[in-house]
Every structure is written in structure tokens, then in C-alpha cells.
Design a protein around this nucleic acid. Structure first.
Lengths: 342, 342
DNA sequence: CTGAAAGCGCTTACAG
DNA sequence: CTGAAAGCGCTTACAG
């Protein structure tokens, strides 16, 4: 069942049918209704491939999970971003194509080749650690790209990320407002760009409030898992003098630290306060629930869709958009000095 | 840059180039190498739409999130299934197309129309609650479909789900083996098919072990959230006589119940043991970590890819495959009677 | 307001 | 081992 069959049944040309499908105005209402009816009766459906071939537009957006580490449907941040992105871009008339990296990575193919192959109208590039260079070929191509957590510099590219500089200050400020003055940190030994930013901003923020910072209060974990946070906290405990509050660079590290502190007989937050970062779902169910900083994934996803749409449909300059993170206060940071509440 | 340009540069016909692209054997090695080199030098990439138009095969698998409720990238079960499915189907040479329901649902379009439009070779249908009827049109069509948690009856369809009948018995058996005899249940007031199966199998399992079941030990929550589990547990507490162990139909309900029991001064598992169902990530970080039943999402995802591949490439009968769930033992169920360990 | 025809970039019998 | 040509199902100037 194709456009020709419909044209034959209706006794019109394929050009006319095509115009009706695409809502052209220069068709008589009578013809339009008649042809529409025939299409409906015959369950006619246009073919995307023929249309794409003829128009060079696919109405498809490619989704690139870049980086070898930590990018996956299992990563809560990316899942949330993609979720709102999908809804918003769907409203704008695009469907999503998820590239399978598995097979073609072996063959030395790249994202650009895949994008060309499918003639996607644009791409969303979501980056974890260790981003492959082929991602930047895509960025440099004329295909519009919107980056999440990755700096894109191509002509038709923009990128969005949380304002990472503001994450640590929000936590430090919260600690400060609640009367905590001795503040520790659990970071990562091999810090990614984002992790490094969190650490640097943490130190800067302490200075702003003229707070002491002792080397004993800074520990670095081997990896991202809760177990690594547990080990890091054990090390902090072993060093003797503890801070009164600890900021862990991720929620998972905070979970591990909480367990270590509890095992050492400390109460949270009465003896030691803890804050994490990311606001993964589990923060709500720990004992006590974890105060943390949430990235505004909803806003990031929606913005990404809007901007990509503009990139695909009109000229736009390369830009970086930063989205404000948000402090989520739960019970893991109590009030250290009564009367000084945040 | 198309096949014709390459053919011209190489001084061969487009047919020859096409055969080289598709690894036909009846091409002289000399020609093959020469043309391959030219393609490479010119950065030539074939076009999916032209190929699909000519062959009626797209190498695309459509992903349908069916149902109005609880199906989304934010649902851990589906995310995990899709994750392994994507990897496996990628290895088999297919990419994934995620249909945007948003726009076309308004227009009364359906999944079948979308599938035809994109000429997907097959679909994976993942179902939550309240599945739309248009899903069954897809099922009934000649397009191969693999269903997850949804009964598909079409010619070219198969479906996979966890063996839900075995979930509750695994928990009851675990309780029993650990010496618990008084076992309660937190279910859902408006139970979906899956939830109803869990409840029925729970009751049956108690009978098998000749265990008492008191109405006071069975409570029903309003909804899926942890807060609902909290309220349900409060109700159980209010009724007076408590069971020694409680099976909550989902992890979230279990989290809420744990909080309610702790607030009432009960220790877990010393005073009351709890088990959940689903094995969401947070189970690892509650205090104590929650014993639960995990669906084998890895197996489900891989099986789905394998079976769909077969459905797309050869005849296969409509079948239902059940995947064994797995008990994940953590610390929320201790040993009630010393010496009787599970 | 409608139609004839070229073209989008591939594949595939078929002939040689 | 190679090529000429028809065909896949659309769109789009262009002519009328």
C-alpha cells in the first residue's frame, strides 16, 4: 500500500496525495476529504525511508551515550535527563534513535558515520568519563548537537551542564547556617573534571566563610561505590580528630561513610553530619535520610530538547548553558548550635 | 557523496560498489580493495533510508513503553531490561528506535502505524499498568514482537516475564527456614495482575508450610510509595498482635514499613523481620539492608534480544518464557530460632 | 487547484 | 567477475 495505490483509487495524481499528506493548502477541500477517507479506509501509512530519502530530513534525533564509564540506562542522572528530553522532543515531533555502540565500535566506525547513515536531524550527546574522540568528530560536523556534561565547540552545537561551581558552596553554606564550623570532605582519588570542580569549589567556599581546613578532614576514595566511601570514612576515623560535618562528593560515598560512622558508634547527625551529592532515589530511604544536592535534570532535559530543536531549525550560536543545582535538605544534617537554624 | 560518485571515481558500476558494501563474494579482490580504499578516502557512508527503501529491512527495533502508568526510563525494572536488551540486540546488528508517544497519541495514531512508518523489523513491548489497546494491534500485525510482562498472542510474537508464582514462595520459604512462623503481608488495595499473583502465591505458600494466617497480619496499602507502606505498617501496629516477619509486595512498601516499625521502637530483624520485592538499588543502603526478591533482568533482556532476533529472521511459534526470580538475602531477616539457619 | 516527470541513493534479478 | 536498468515510495519544481 503506497501513495500510488491511493492516487489510483482516488483518481488523482501522486503529487496531489503527497500534498494532502503534508497539509499543503492549495488543494480543494472536496479532494482533500475524499483522499483522506480513502487513505483511512485502506490503512495507508507513509514510509519514513522514502520520505527521508526525498527530503533529507528524518525527524530522528540520535542519542549518543559517550564515554566508556558510567553512561548507561543504569545511571540515574542520564536516565532522568533523557526522560524529560524524550517527552519534550516528542512533543516537537521527533523520535529517538539510540545508537548501538557495541557492534560498530569494534569495527572502528564512529558516531558521525552512524548519524550520517541514519540521517538524523540532530544528536544529543550525553557524556560520562573517558569520552571517545569520535564524539568530537560528530561535534565538528554540520549535524546539530546538544551536549550534556560535555563541552562542545562545533558550529551547530550547544551544551548544557549543572553549574558545578555552585554545588559545593550550597552544601558549605548549609553546614555553616546550621552552626557547623569543622567541615570535612570525601572526594575521589582520580577525579573527573566534574569531581575536581566539586572539590575546588568546596575549598574555595570554606575560605569564603573563613573556616579552618585540616588535612585530616580530607579523604579520598578509590572509586565511586558505597564501599569506597566506607573505606574512606574508616580512614578518617583512624586519623583521630573528626570534623563535625562531612560533605561526600557523591551520594554513594555518603552512604558508605554513614555506615562507617554508625559502626564506630557515632550518631548522625548528632555526632557527625553528612551531606551527599546527586540526590539518587536511595537518599530518601537511608537512616537518617540524606541531605544532598540535586541537579535539575528536568530543566536540563527540557532545555536540551528546546535548544536542539532551534539548532535543527535555525541558526544559533555555540553556547554553554548552566543550570542551577538545588539543595535538598533531609535529616542527615541537624542543627549543631541550637538557635542557629538554616 | 553517494554510491554513484564512488562508482564513477573507481570506474566501476554502482552494482559493483553495492556488492562490495554488502560483502558479496563474487567480486575480484583487486576491485574490492580499490573501491574500499576510495570509499574510505572520500568518507563515503551509505544511506539507511535508501537501503531500507530498497530492501524493506531497516535493522531497527522499535521500543514501545506501553501503558499509562509506571513505564518510563525512571522505572528501574524496565531500565535494567532495556539496558541488557540494547547491548545484546546491538551485537546482533540492530539499533533502537524509541517511539515518542507524546505527539502521536493526541492525534489518535497508534504503535502499528509508527512501526510501519519507520519499517522497524521488530518491536519490544514493555508493559506497565493500563495498556492501550493499540498495543494489541501491533501484536496482531505481522511485525515480530517480544513482550515483557505482557501476554502477547500474535503469530510473530513471544513474551517473557518473571515466574511471578515463585516470588512469594521464595520469601516464605526463607522465613520458614530461619525459624519464623508468624508471617504477615503488606499488599496493595488495587492490585495489578502481578501484585495479585504475589498475594495469591503468598497465601498458597503459607498453606504449604501449614502456617497460620491471621487477618490482622494482612494489611493493604493505598499505593506504591514508601509512605503508603509506612501507613500500612502503622495500621498493622495499631491492630495489636504483630507477626514476627513481614513480606511487603514491593521494596518501597518495605522501606516505609521499616520506618514505621523503627519508630515504634522495634528492632529489625530482632523484633520483626522484613522482606521486600524488586531489589531496587536502595535496598543496599537501608538500615538494615533489605532482603528481597530480584527479577533476573539481565536474563530477561538478553533472552528478549535473542528471541526477537529469531522472530525477525525465521519462523517461530508464539511462546511464553518464564524466568526464575532470585532471592537476595541481606540483613533484614535474621535468625529467629538459633540453630535453624537458612 | 491538479498532474507529469525527475530525482533522492540504494538493491537486485538478469544478461553477458 | 561486472554492468545496465528497473524499482523501492516519496517530494518538488514546473507547467498548465
Amino acid at each position: 500500500m503506497n501513495i500510488k495505490t491511493i492516487a489510483n483509487i482516488a483518481g488523482v495524481s501522486v503529487a496531489t496525495v503527497s500534498k494532502i499528506i503534508n497539509n499543503y493548502s492549495d488543494i480543494s477541500e472536496e479532494t482533500r476529504q475524499r483522499v483522506l477517507k480513502i487513505m483511512d479506509e485502506n490503512g495507508y501509512r507513509p514510509s519514513s525511508s522514502a520520505k527521508t530519502l526525498a527530503t533529507k530530513k528524518s525527524n530522528l534525533v540520535g542519542v549518543v551515550f559517550a564515554g566508556k564509564l558510567n553512561v548507561d540506562f543504569s545511571h540515574p542522572f542520564f536516565v532522568q535527563v533523557i526522560n524529560t528530553f524524550k517527552k519534550q522532543i516528542g512533543l516537537l515531533g521527533y523520535d529517538l534513535l539510540f545508537f548501538s555502540n557495541e557492534k560498530f565500535l569494534d569495527q572502528g566506525e564512529d558516531y558521525l558515520a552512524r548519524s550520517k547513515y541514519f540521517q538524523v536531524d540532530g544528536c544529543i550527546i550525553i557524556a560520562g568519563d573517558e569520552v571517545e574522540s569520535s564524539v568530537y568528530d560528530l561535534d565538528a560536523s554540520p549535524i546539530p548537537c546538544i551536549g550534556i556534561d560535555i563541552e562542545l565547540t562545533g558550529q551547530g552545537s550547544c551544551y548544557i551542564m549543572s553549574d558545578n561551581e555552585k554545588i559545593s558552596p550550597k552544601v558549605v553554606e548549609h553546614f555553616y547556617m546550621n552552626g557547623y564550623r569543622d567541615i570535612g570532605f570525601i572526594g575521589l582519588q582520580r577525579a573527573s573534571l566534574v569531581m575536581q570542580q566539586r572539590e575546588d569549589a568546596f575549598k574555595r567556599s570554606l575560605k569564603q566563610f573563613s573556616l579552618d581546613t585540616k588535612p585530616e578532614w580530607m579523604v579520598y576514595s578509590k572509586d565511586y561505590a558505597a564501599e569506597d566511601g566506607y573505606q574512606a570514612a574508616k580512614e578518617m576515623l583512624a586519623r583521630g580528630e573528626l570534623p563535625r560535618a562531612v560533605f561526600a562528593a557523591t551520594d554513594l560515598l555518603a552512604f558508605g561513610a554513614m555506615r562507617a560512622f554508625k559502626e564506630a558508634g557515632l550518631r548522625i547527625p548528632e555526632d557527625i553530619a553528612i551531606a551527599g551529592c546527586d540526590d539518587i532515589e536511595a537518599c530518601r530511604y537511608t537512616d537518617p535520610p540524606l541531605t544532598t544536592v540535586k541537579q535539575d535534570t528536568d530543566k536540563i532535559g527540557r532545555l536540551a530538547a528546546m535548544i536542539l530543536f532551534d539548532l535543527m531549525n535555525k541558526q544559533m550560536d555555540n553556547q554553554c548553558i548552566k543550570v542551577e543545582p538545588e539543595l535538598v535538605v533531609r535529616q542527615s544534617c541537624g542543627v549543631a548550635v541550637p538557635g542557629i537554624e538554616g
